[in-house]
Amino acid sequence: MCPEHIIELMHQYLDEEIDPEKEQILREHLRSCKECEIIFNELKKTVAFVKSISNMQAPADFTAHVLARLPKEKKKVLAARLLRNHPFLSAASLFVVLMMGSLFSTWSQDREFSVTNQKNLVVKNNTVIVPKGEVVKGDVVVRNGKLKIEGEIQGDVTVIHGEKYLASAGHVTGQIDEVNEVFDWIWYQMKKSAKEVTGFFEQ
């Protein structure tokens, strides 16, 4: 039977925690004791065997399976990744934000009365009148004021933040738009820009 303290030294050796003095004691003992030498070699062989089997790989679709089982991702992160991966989208969304900002500010700032300068229009105290029997050729835009149509307008009419009265005898050949709410205003601006763009290409 091998001495317990020598077995202990063998384990210290295998743990790589033996100090040189004790290693010397172990080596000397092993030289003189056949039985201990066998045990020591068997222990070393055992360690080598156990180490030799360590080479395994997870199944191929392991990561996908794990990700599929995770709780749902937060929307904020999804959006952030979308923008990171598609720079054009982030540029576009920034553009939209800035556009909206400027639109809102122009909507709230623009409180001055104004009217398209057309012949035959009569302006009285923020009220624009198309007199009876008169014909206005071209579009009319009125901001922050009223529009009374008693005659005829050959073109589009737009009233922003105001009112329009169409007398029974009055006549408008084009479209009539009344813009009184912010969203109408934005829609109007979008249509206008679209028209400008298409107009630019038509030219």
Binding site: M56, Q57, A58, P59, F62, V66, L67, E73, V77, R81
Partner: peptide
Amino acid sequence: IKGDQDAFGEIVEIYKNSVYQLCF
């Protein structure tokens, strides 16, 4: 921690073999 699951996927890739082996 911010909720990015792609980043977690990378962590899984790094440790999947050793964790799987330990379990096996």
